[in-house]
Amino acid sequence: MVKVLVLRVEGTNCELETANALRLAGAEPELVHINALMKGQKGIEDYQGLIIPGGFSHGDDISAGVILANQIKYLMGNEVRAFVEEGKPIMGICNGFQALVKSWLLPAIDGPFIKQDATLAFNDSGVFKDEWVHLKPVKNHACKFLQDVKKGVYLPIAHAEGRFIVDKETIKEMNSNKQIVFKYVENPNGSVENIAGVSNPEGNVFGMMPHPERFVHGWMHPSWTRGKINEEGDGLQFFRGFVKYASKF
C-alpha cells in the first residue's frame, strides 16, 4: 500500500475527506499533526507522498496559509527539501496550495525555498465564495502525476483568498517550464490568466484552489438529480494519479 502523509495543523479542516479520497484511490493515508513531525515522533521521509489539505491553518492569521508556510520553511525545511528533491509528490489543496506558494515551494522557478514567485490574494469579489467551476488542463503541462487528467473537470471552490498573482516575467518562465497545469474556464476570483493550479518545474509539487476531494463520487455533483450520473466524480482521478506516481518511491 502506498503510504501518504496528510498533514494536519491547527485549523486544518478537510483532512477526513482527503484521506477518504486517498483510500478510494488505493492508498493508505495517515493523518499526521505538524506537532508530531516537529517533535520527531513522525518523519516525512517514511512516506511516499505528502498532501496538505484545505482549511484555515492557524486561522489564516496574517494571511492565508502563511504561518503554516513558515513552519514548513523554517522548522522542517531540510526534510521537505529532501522530499522534494527526491522527486516524491506533494499536493496542496486550497489552504494547502496557499501554504505551498507562501513557503516558496510553488511555483519555485529556481527551486524550493529560493524566492517567492507568486501569491494568492483576496478574491476580486472580496468575499468567501463556495461554487462549482469548470477547469481545463493545459496541454503538455509538467505535473507528473496529473498526466492522465485529459478532459475538463468540474469541481467546487471554497475560498476567500484564491486570486493567483504573478508578474509578467514569472508567467513567461512558468509557461516555458510548463508549470501552469489547470486554468479556470470562467474565472471565479480574478486569478491572472485564469490560473487555477500550478506545479514546480520538475512537476512533482502541485497545488490548486479547487477541491477534488469534494467530488469523488457522482452524488456529490451539485445537480446529480438532473440526469445521468457517473459513479465516479471528477476529483478522484487527481488522487489516483497521485497515488500511482507515489508508488514509485
Binding site: 478537510c14 484545505g54 468567501f128 463556495d130 461554487e131 476531494e213 469534494r214 469523488v216 452524488w219 456529490m220
Partner: peptide, 16 residues
C-alpha cells in the same frame, strides 16, 4: 448568503 458559507466542507452535503 449561501455562497459565503462553505456548505460543502467535509464532503457530506449530497443535496445542497
Amino acid at each position: 448568503v449561501i455562497r459565503q458559507y462553505d456548505h460543502e466542507v467535509q464532503g457530506r452535503t449530497i443535496v445542497k
